[in-house]
Write a protein that binds this DNA or RNA. Structure first.
Lengths: 140, 140
DNA sequence: ATACGACTTCAAGTCAGCTTGAGGTCAAGT
DNA sequence: ACTTGACCTCAAGCTGACTTGAAGTCGTAT
């Protein structure tokens, strides 16, 4: 099994060396060995990084993401948590959809003041008061 | 038109006074007048706050959100930008959907190692390499 | 008239998630 | 043997979005 330098990981994943080192520092990933000082990664790390990027885009924090992997680097989440997370994501999707609808409304509605347009108000109401959402998408 | 104290805004919107003052500081909202030292808000601000919360949940930064409102506090975005933002949101929705699918897969697939399961890999591939996403959902 | 409580300002602090920079190491090619 | 370039460490810095705390102001109820 051929090992990869940090530079290759960067090339193939788009994740910067400084970020990879940071992820290691916080325990999110680890390199298999060192060649001299240099970190050597197994190719599987690339899959893991894909997952990490996906979860980040989904608004999960690094520590939440870390919690999704077991010791052996396997994705391992108790069923119940999966259900919860899936619900959380569905919630986010609803919010995003509401936001998109509002934008489309603004694009199409001829009313001079959206702020008072009843259908606009309705959309806002509809989107409001569900539950919190977690953390933050990146600027990668 | 009855004006509202910061405390009432907080009660009705769930947004803390410190946050409201911060939003004012960065030019995202403004109070109509003062009663003594106290900020007095028009009730419309509540609608605006709903929009702000919605957009934040959609991952937009405060300055991006600020850019969605005109001088008069109206929601005012050039059509083209609306299209772009709507696309961005659709993109985010796709990512979230991919994430949810991955979670469901993990819940259901009996394979010992998801990392090597072909359908798992396929989902990751499918979710990957589109374009960046902007910013951050909150912990409100 | 005074006390109360809800507001005010301003500076500093916090947290996540990185990035930057200075100075050092080391394996491989010439 | 030497140079090169890709890596390394460690501390400090940065941005966004707030929060906190100390000290002050002021309208209203008693």
């Amino acid at each position: 099994m051929k090992l990869l330098d940090i530079g290759e990981i960067t090339q193939r994943s788009g994740v910067k060396p400084s970020t990879l080192r940071y992820y290691e520092e916080v325990g999110l990933i680890q390199s298999l060995t060192r060649h001299g000082l240099r970190r050597q990664y197994e190719p599987q790390i690339l899959t893991k990084l894909s997952l990490i990027m996906l979860a980040k885009a989904g608004g999960f924090s690094l520590s939440e993401i870390a919690g999704m992997f077991s010791e052996k680097g396997q994705l391992q989440i108790p069923r119940e948590q999966i259900r919860d997370r899936a619900n959380l994501i569905d919630q986010q999707i609803k919010e995003l959809t509401a936001l998109r609808d509002v934008l489309h409304h603004v694009a199409d509605c001829p009313a001079p003041s959206h702020m008072e347009c009843p259908s606009f108000q309705r959309m806002l109401k509809a989107s409001g008061r569900q539950k919190p959402v977690k953390k933050k998408p990146p600027t990668y």
